[in-house]
Design a binder for these strands. Sequence first.
RNA 1: GCGGGUAUAGCUCAGUUGGCUAGAGCGCAGCUCUGAUAAAGCUGAGGUCCUUGGUUCGAAUCCAAGUACCCGCACCA
Length: 1121
Amino acid sequence: MPFEKVLTQQVDFPALERAILELWQRNGTFEKLRQKNRNGPRWSFLDGPITANNPMGVHHAWGRTYKDAFQRYHAMNGRHLRYQNGFDCQGLWVEVEVERELKLRSKRDIENLVPGDTFQSIDRFVHYCKERVDKYARVQTEQSIRLGYWMDWDREEDWRKPPDQRRSYFTMSEENNYTIWAFLKKCHQRGLIYRGYDAMPWCPRCSVGLSQMEMAEGYQLVAHRAVFVRLPLRDRPGENLLVWTTTPWTLTSNVAAAVNPGLTYLKVRHKEEIYYLAKGAFTAQRLEEQWKKKEWVAGVPKLSTLEQHFKSKGGYEIVGSVRGADMIGWSYEGPFDELPEPSKSARTVHRVIAWKDVGETEGTGIVHIAPGCGKEDFQLGKEEGLPPVAPLDEYGVFLPGFGELAGRSALDHTTTDWILDNLQQKGLLLAVEKYPHSYPHCWRCKTELLFRLVEEWFIDMSWRDEIKRVVEQVTFLPESINGKARELDWLTNMGDWMISKKRFWGLALPIWVDEQTGDFEVIGSRAELKERAVEGWDKFEGHTPHRPWIDLVKIRNPKTGNRMSRIPDVGNPWLDAGIVPFSTMYYNRDRAEWAKWFPADFITESFPGQFRNWFYAILAMSTMMENRPPMKVLLGHGLVRDQWDRPMHKSAGNAIPFEGAADEGYTLTDPKGKTERYPPMGADVIRWMFARHNPAHNLDFGPAPAEELRAKFTLKLWNVYAFFCNYARLDGFDPSVLPLPMAERPDLDRWILSDLQLLVRTAREAFESYNLMAFCLEAERFVDDKLSNWYVRRSRRRFWKSEQSRDKQAAYQTLYTMLLTLAKLFAPIMPFLTETMYQNLKTTDMPESIHLCAYPTVDETLIDAELSEEMNCLLSLVSLGLAARNNVKIKVRQPLAELKVQASAESKEYAAVERFGDQLLAELNVKVVSLHDPEWGPLLMPEVKPNPKTLGPKFGARMKDIASALAAADAEELAMKVRAGDCVELTCGGEVILLEPGDLIVSMKAPEGWVGMVDGETQIALDTRLTEALSLEGTARDVVRHVQEQRKEASLEMEDRIALYLGTDSEKLRQAITTHRDYIAAETLTIEWSSQPLTGPGVHRATVKVDGQPLTIELRRSMAK
RNA sequence: GCGGGUAUAGCUCAGUUGGCUAGAGCGCAGCUCUGAUAAAGCUGAGGUCCUUGGUUCGAAUCCAAGUACCCGCACCA
């Protein structure tokens, strides 16, 4: 038997999916696909590496759905693919998790993992990092397989191999690391690698400097205590500069004060002192915009103006003014000159300097400058020859030389307390306030950043224009987010690339330094290092190029003969991910092969952040390596949020784990705090949900949208499939019989086959233009509206007929084609459901898996535009008819005599009724459909009534007069004007009044006994007069419905024949039953009528009400033939 | 501050190159169907397509300005 029976109740889709996974596994389907396409034209996809640091979440499934869908589509078109997944392995994110696992608090703890042995400690720590990456790479592999993501996944034996020999690529592989060396060497050869000494953003917890792109990730709105501090002028007794800062700890390292030479500064007398501050700053409404927009930190009061501060502290008087330029060179007393360290250098400086960037919308217009604690400060200090004071160590703790502050953390509140107290005691503190501002935090551990003087390594990005020219050649999708412009914007604004990290687990930067001279060299490959090594190679040999082993290798400075050591820094992880267009495509091993796959046809990732991260890194590195774009098309997509549009957070209880969504079910806490458990949705629904979404927008993911999708799409498709299989099975339909020619198929069949071709066209266009949404939305409409709700509904009776006819054959063949084609169309997006369907639909001469089939192509000969138009017209006629019935509350089950459709001979309505009259009869349950030529006069007459809503207020009591005047007026003329949007003049009580179109309600009225409906140009009228015969027929249909209901109650199979007894006291019921005895019998498969109540076993009895009258139904399965 | 985007029903969103009487789903209201049946369907209410100008025979769509929101960049003492 070709078709298995298909259940429609409580279908466990996740379980079906798991069965398909086993089927693929058992048959080696994926390998067969690769084998089939191995000589096909290439399609090159490049996977952006997923961070192998935690299990995958549902949000990862978005990109992975795209990746898999496009790969499967191209595979179905015979393309040869690499199927290489990528894992991102190195970097601080892994270190932070390993630290957490090992309960380590700081770099010091890591270096002391093996007490007293830094080398061993680092070795062990790096080992743990590698282990963590392997662990989660395996987890993510399993999860991805469950998602149905077909990649060349690593198997058990592969995990025992080193990363370089596995199927997926790992950024920790030697190949990847050494290819970055080659990149850095190229940079160095162009003189672009340099060592920078600068005040850098620094995370005191991780003890690491942050690059510009990392810093951008971590801005958060927080409130700090900001202070107004006076700095007494040395040669002007009783006079002070007033400065303001949000980071009081930096005052310890104050060296200078900057003014804008072009601004006017006020001399303000307050109590016994004179304060200098910028005129504009005095009254500036600080952060007013933010306050209004509520971009504020809860609990922080509105900021006072400087003027208000002075007023509240006892008043002020403006006693003069001075230009900023005239203040340059003034000397003042520093706020912490009594401390040993500041007293050494800063104390002798403390002068007013000029800085054109000083503004007066915030602060005092005089900026406290601490070159050791701020980026601009440092720059300014360099220009002015100011000595920087560096107060903090790598943990953000004050160094010795800062008195009581030594050993205290700059971030600690009590440290700020101490500083404020100290300033207060010295009488320097004018005011303290809470100040909300967006401040950088460590994007990994959320610690507030400090600025600290450090030495880091950079790539000079002055060649940005070269990258821009490469970017110009890439297609960025979706168009609406303007990715190319964003990327170019970043390239314009970005600074030099800080590539060093003072950490342990990562790319070993191949920079060797001669400590005595400061000379450095960049090594470009393992071979080069081996060649140059003068020490330590033997110990390093056999290890991956990671710390601590690589640090043992020393080279000689050819100029001085000095020994050169590798800098201890590791690399920025975006170098790791950025090199993959080379390292993973055989660039070093087989350049010819690389050229076949480079550039990638396609990449896709979530776009927030990536324009300065991965997209940037691959574009920049590819420009340096080959001056070519690494990909042709980039598709970005948004973020996944919960179904209430909130960000997903584990702590908020609204994050959905992948396993939960796929198989296990999950709990979810709604915005009101209620937690509920939900069943799994399965991979197909997850995938379709992502595929159908607009990639430019964030996606609200959760049980509600999943359920909606299941109901309106998955289940409908499934029900149609089940309907087909279950009847085809009973009927013994043979799909291999020669198909009937199109000419012999009814219009309904030719219509759906025609529209199917249009869907195939949409599908192909969508996949080729990377716009899955367009296809999915169209597919949903096709399945729901066209296939399920119209084609199958209208065709059902064709399948039920007991005799074999050509019409029945046509119906089976058409629906079979439909299901098979749709399954193939949807296969790239819903690989499981479509495979399940295919397995039950395929014949022996078809490929063993749907994923080994060819993607459908459009058969232009089947497209019939005229037919589609007429079918659409028919659908709107049906809608109108149903609306008309609804209007007069006559249910569809009640037959009516006649439907009139207004249609001229050349109208589409005419053609539709001609062609599909029988469908109209059946669907609207009328006896006759007739055409009404408008030339015979209007079918419906306009009727114009006053609109009391608008006229009431205007005319009050005169409404009645207006109504009667309207009734007397020419309705047709009025209606025409109203439709045209014109005003209407109405003579009412001898007076002409003007009515606006909205004041009148125009409806279309049918003749007595009829009900009319209008939709645009289309008009219909339905005869609502019930004759005795019609009424009896309606009753008979009610009886049938109840009998069917009872058959179901009695759990009969749908092909079972029955014996039936119907008992009633109602004359009308009796008459209806008698008159329509044959019809009832045919519908309910009654082959034995009983005039007496049934006896014996297996009798099902029920009493129902028909037309308000009791009817006894008794039935049992009939043994007669 | 600079740059970009968006604005369509109560909510979430579709709407091709200008060609509508502007749509869907959810929600709401009222119904209906019934061997695909623990599924489904229909009808209805609900719109200033953000505002104002312009281009055009015709604008949700194109242009300009404004408003609001979002994003990116720069973020300052």
